[in-house]
Amino acid sequence: MTIENTAASEGLGRKILARTAWPVLLILCICTTAYGFAIDRPVIVFNLTYLALAVALYLLERNMPFEKTWLENDGQTFANIAHTLTSKGLVQGLVTFSGVIGITAYITPMQGEGYGIWPRDWPLAIQVIMTLVAAEFGLYWAHRISHEWKPLWKFHAIHHSVTRLWIVNTGRFHFIDSLLSIVLGISIPLALGAPLEAITWLSAITAYIGMLTHCNVDMRFGLLSMVFNTPGLHRWHHSKKIVEGNRNYGENLMVWDMIFGTWINPDRRPPARIGITEEMPTSFPAQLVWPFKEIKELDQEGWTTLINEENTKPKV
């Protein structure tokens, strides 16, 4: 085989991989999670699957990055990991502790037969899809309010302060920000009577799509971006321009962005220079207390929305 043929073959292989990597990886994650449920080991299998997804995306980021400049060290790897552990660990611990002191007294009746309007006799796959759509409504508004109301933006700005997107800053959220999203996200399907198994599936799929959304891998999405929150859409969400950054709020699905007119997918390359306009401390402890200091200093105008003219739709 000639050098030209080898290069052409590699180019074709890369194009195929770019178009198939996102859906194939998500489908594989869903299949292994289903296997975990089937053998009654969902937590163990989920953790192994999540780790395998991280490794696969890390290798893809190194070999076919979307933005090569995002491969450069930004000095925030420790802070990214620390925020991930703090937000996930502390929030999960709080939820567990809350269950011990009585929250389960409210959740348990929701799991009983006859509660709510949830069709529990429907196939689980359909119930999971319904749970995703219902939870997405709460996740959408939690995310949107965190952009448009300054006090909550100060917490959410921790996530947007990154200057590169890659798998390690997937979980870079202030724990207050995470708590708001979790509460608003799961409360709706729970109130409707969704079973805990469907809620568990929601958590797993959200984790998988979250990492896929933030990866720095050169992929093509096509019609997938009309349904799912893909990296292609989320890169616009991290733009410094408010007219671009205050769009694409969906966590997993884009249904509510479509309904409320906040979905965008311009036919051009998203900005490589991302981040926020505020000055963010570089250390993890300073970032934890930064929102509280900022809120304290907000004047009367600061308690209004972040934007005054953002409701004007961008020209795309």
Rank of each mutant, 00 (worst) to 15 (best):
M130S: 11
N169K: 07
G210F: 09
I81S: 07
A286P: 06
F260H: 06
L288P: 03
H147P: 01
L288I: 15
L25Y: 02
N229Y: 08
H238T: 11
H156A: 01
G261K: 09
Q92N: 15
T20P: 00
E113N: 15
V168D: 09
S181L: 13
K313I: 06
F284A: 06
H156W: 02
L179M: 12
T69P: 06
N252E: 13
E10P: 06
A125S: 14
G114C: 06
K293I: 03
C215W: 02
R273K: 15
L298V: 05
K296A: 12
P123S: 08
R164M: 03
L180G: 07
A38W: 09
S181G: 15
V91S: 00
G193L: 05
S9Q: 13
M110K: 09
E294V: 01
P65N: 05
H83R: 00
S283T: 12
I30M: 12
K293A: 04
L253E: 00
W303V: 03
I242A: 15
I44P: 01
G13Q: 10
L306H: 09
S203C: 12
G185Q: 05
R172T: 05
V316E: 14
T84H: 13
P119R: 04
T84R: 10
S283L: 05
P231A: 02
T104N: 13
E297G: 12
L233E: 02
M280H: 10
I295Q: 01
G245A: 08
G93N: 07
G116Y: 04
L152G: 02
V255E: 03
V100S: 07
C29G: 00
P271V: 07
F292Q: 10
W118Q: 02
I295S: 00
P281D: 02
I276E: 09
G245K: 01
G75V: 06
N252K: 11
I103W: 15
P42V: 07
R144G: 04
S203P: 00
P281S: 05
T2N: 15
R14T: 12
Q300M: 13
A82K: 03
L233A: 11
T96G: 13
L165I: 08
Q287C: 05
L190W: 05
S283P: 03
P291D: 01
I101D: 08
A82Y: 00
T96R: 14
V43R: 04
G11M: 14
A194P: 08
M254R: 07
A135C: 12
A134F: 07
D177C: 03
A125L: 14
T32S: 10
R120Q: 07
N311G: 14
H156G: 00
K241D: 15
S98W: 12
M211S: 11
S181E: 13
E61M: 00
L192H: 05
F46M: 08
Y106D: 14
A134L: 09
H238D: 09
G245N: 04
L90P: 00
V255A: 07
